[in-house]
Amino acid sequence: MKRLFILSLTVLILAINGPANELIRQGDIYDQQFKPDEALKYYLPAEKQNPNDAALLVKIARQHVFRMDGLKTNTEKLTEGQKALAYAERAVKADPRSSDAHLSIAIVHGKMTPLLGNRGKIEASKKIKESAEKAAKLNPKDDYAWHLLGRWHQALAGMGSLTRGIAQLVYGELPAATNEEAVTYFKKAIALKPDRLLHHIELGRTYAQMGKTEEAKAAINKGLAMPNREKDDPETKRRGRATLAGL
């Protein structure tokens, strides 16, 4: 038994100190299982070997985003979010032409936004839009970049007067944002990846914001009928059900 334990420990040590590509491959297995702590055990040693690997830095940023859900306080979540943001920004610096790197910045800001005050939310929204636009320009086939632009229009179009006043202070002149543009972007995201339930539910929530009840029900129910595939799918469905309940 002792020899077996030593052998297993040796195999683990060799794996964690192996070639970067093998470490990344092992980390990817845990990434796909939404196990960020396990994934980081492989990604971080790989980072030491390749500190300027933009794709790897994006993967590490994603693990810190995943870890936010398991933390209790907003302070802890924001601290973890800042770690994610630092890796995303390093990824952009390592490869300014990487659409995934720019998208990672937008995703991190989007994850932290609900934890911020009104002014912080507006400042984050500006960064989300800028990064998502860069990602979409670099890779027009990235459905999630178009989705984030849809969410940006959806959020600004639904602002109350107080938040809109804060937005004008942050943006200077408040940029045009409409539910109609949000619908256009969500439909573009759906055309690129129709099996991503997030696109359908947020399209439906936009229709609800526009007062288009039947269209809202159809889009949200379509998303709710899809199987969960991504880490945030249960929370996305919760938002969809909450919107349906208010129609």
Rank of each mutant, 00 (worst) to 15 (best):
K127E: 15
A219W: 00
N74E: 15
L156W: 01
A136G: 13
R3E: 15
G246L: 13
I13V: 10
V11E: 08
I29F: 12
E76M: 05
H64Y: 15
R241Y: 02
Q32S: 11
A124T: 02
L56E: 09
T178C: 03
T75E: 15
K231W: 10
M112V: 00
N17W: 03
G246R: 11
W146V: 04
D69G: 13
L192S: 04
M159P: 07
A55W: 03
R238T: 15
A88R: 04
I6A: 13
R164I: 11
I16P: 05
R241K: 14
L162C: 09
A94V: 05
A132Q: 09
R196P: 05
A124L: 02
I60G: 01
K35E: 15
L71Y: 02
G110F: 04
T184D: 14
D37I: 03
G160N: 13
K83H: 12
G160C: 04
A189P: 04
R196I: 12
E214N: 12
Q63S: 01
K59T: 04
G204L: 00
Q33E: 15
T184H: 14
T243H: 02
K77T: 12
I128L: 07
E214A: 10
A61G: 12
G120C: 03
S125F: 14
K137F: 14
Y43V: 03
L192Y: 03
P19F: 02
G150P: 04
T213Y: 11
K222V: 00
D69V: 10
G81S: 13
K93E: 11
A86P: 02
A225T: 04
N179L: 09
M1T: 14
A106W: 01
A157H: 01
K59F: 03
A61P: 05
P140L: 05
L115P: 07
L169N: 11
R90T: 00
L197P: 04
I166Y: 12
I60M: 01
A39D: 07
L57P: 07
A245L: 10
W152I: 00
P36E: 11
G223W: 01
K111N: 12
W152C: 05
L14A: 14
R25S: 14
P234H: 04
S98G: 04
Q154P: 07
D28L: 10
D95P: 12
K129T: 06
T178I: 00
D142L: 06
R119W: 15
K83E: 14
K126F: 14
R205F: 06
E181M: 11
Q168G: 15
L197S: 04
P51Y: 02
L103N: 07
K141A: 08
I29V: 11
N52Y: 08
R97L: 12
T75N: 15
D37P: 01
L40T: 05
G211H: 03
R229Y: 00
F34W: 07
K193S: 11
T73M: 07
L57W: 05
S125H: 13
D232L: 10
K48M: 06
E215G: 08
Q63V: 02
R90M: 06
W146D: 11
E76N: 02
D31N: 08
I166Q: 08
Q82C: 06
E202F: 13
R196F: 15
D233E: 08
G204I: 10
